[in-house]
């Protein structure tokens, strides 16, 4: 186990070299991003998958994978930088985002279903 000061020093010097990518890592990230962007656009524009729900799920999966690719190859996320505090902050944010998004969509969806009769505005003059 290292002492606190040592860890801080190692970090202050270490992350400068660790947090930047290399030419190959940028190119790999770019290549993957192009593919992961092009496929969902192609799926939606051409309508290859007949079911819209299935297309939507595939497109969302591609988005999640591409976000991870960007995090690793462009933002250089890893569990080591800043003694893992960047990863901790990211995990906390992801939890908050998931709670906020699913909570909002779930509650408002139920509200919409329960309010159904009011939605029938088309028959009104």
């Amino acid at each position: 186990m290292k002492s606190d000061t040592h860890a801080l020093h190692a970090d202050a010097h270490g992350h400068d070299t660790a947090s930047h990518g290399t030419l190959s890592s940028y190119l790999i990230g770019f290549g993957l991003s192009v593919v992961l962007t092009a496929i969902p656009f192609w799926l939606v524009m051409s309508g290859v998958i007949a079911s819209k729900a299935a297309t939507a799920i595939v497109v969302m999966l591609f988005a999640v994978v591409q976000i991870v690719v960007h995090m690793i190859y462009f933002l250089h996320m890893n569990t080591r930088s800043e003694n893992g505090w960047t990863m901790m902050a990211l995990i906390f944010t992801v939890i908050m985002v998931v709670i906020a998004l699913t909570g909002s969509l779930w509650v408002m969806h139920h509200l919409n279903i329960n309010m159904m009769p009011v939605h029938n505005m088309s028959q009104m003059p």
Binding site: V44, K52, V59, M60, A63, I67, M71, F74, L75
Partner: peptide, 20 residues
């Protein structure tokens, strides 16, 4: 790079899923 990550969310959820 963070703004590019946000844009992934925008083009997926707003544009692509909007068209569906």
């Amino acid at each position: 790079h963070f703004l590019d990550v946000v844009w992934i969310g925008v083009f997926t959820f707003v544009y692509l899923l909007g068209m569906l």
